[in-house]
Amino acid sequence: MGVNRRDFLKIAGIAGLFGLSGRAAMDILAPGELEAAEKPVAPPGVKRWAMVVDSRKMDEALMDKCIEACHREHNVPNYGNPKEEIKWVWKEDYHHSFPGQQHAFIEEDLKHKEFLLMCNHCSNPPCCRVCPTQATFQREDGIIMMDMHRCIGCRFCMAACPFGARSFNWGDPWRVTRVEELKKLNPDFPTNRTYPTRSKGVVEKCTFCASRLARGEVPACVEAANEVTEGALIFGDLNDPESGVREALRKHYSIRRKPELGTEPNLYFIV
């Protein structure tokens, strides 16, 4: 954000009252802001991950493929019960994806179109603000991570997230290997033995496949989508002007979910 003229004057005014001046005032009243304002927008070497969903290229079958790839990667169990559902990436229609944007005479195509939703990895994340244990936190590259082994299960982050992107393990995920009817829904659970296991009573969500990124791979959903339709999901670094995401956003009109709340989502939709 940096410091604009108005904020600077406010800080200077308050500082005057307390007899502070110059850099000391900035350090006390707005720590870090001055440095941030002095630095270029993109500190060299720091990435800011984002995703562009090109909804024109998406269809239901492709979205299902993305969801399956994600759920297999992260051992997301299927309980067959919407109240207990764990959602990392999911489908939602236009009206419910962008509530408040719908109107009675909307384009027929859009009215019935499903959108691929996931965590927005907001630049200003309310979930991280409310977490009492820093179990959910923002990495330098913008990814909102979730430490499922520190989470106490208070679910404050679920109340804070305006996008319904967080799911809770209401029961033990491993019971899908014990209960007969659940076994049928999850025949080969766990599908990825290298992914850390979680217990009941913790929150989880999309992590932009942080572990795949660390290996230099793209997120599982992006890989699955682009195997079928090139450019359906574009993933990349917003700090790199030459990246695919920047190019897509430069060339097309894009929207984000609930931008008015100021959370700065990093998931963009081309409609």
Partner: peptide, 14 residues
Amino acid sequence: EGLRITGMSRDVSW
């Protein structure tokens, strides 16, 4: 058993 024995869900999480 976990909190699944309550009426809460991912939508009404408290």
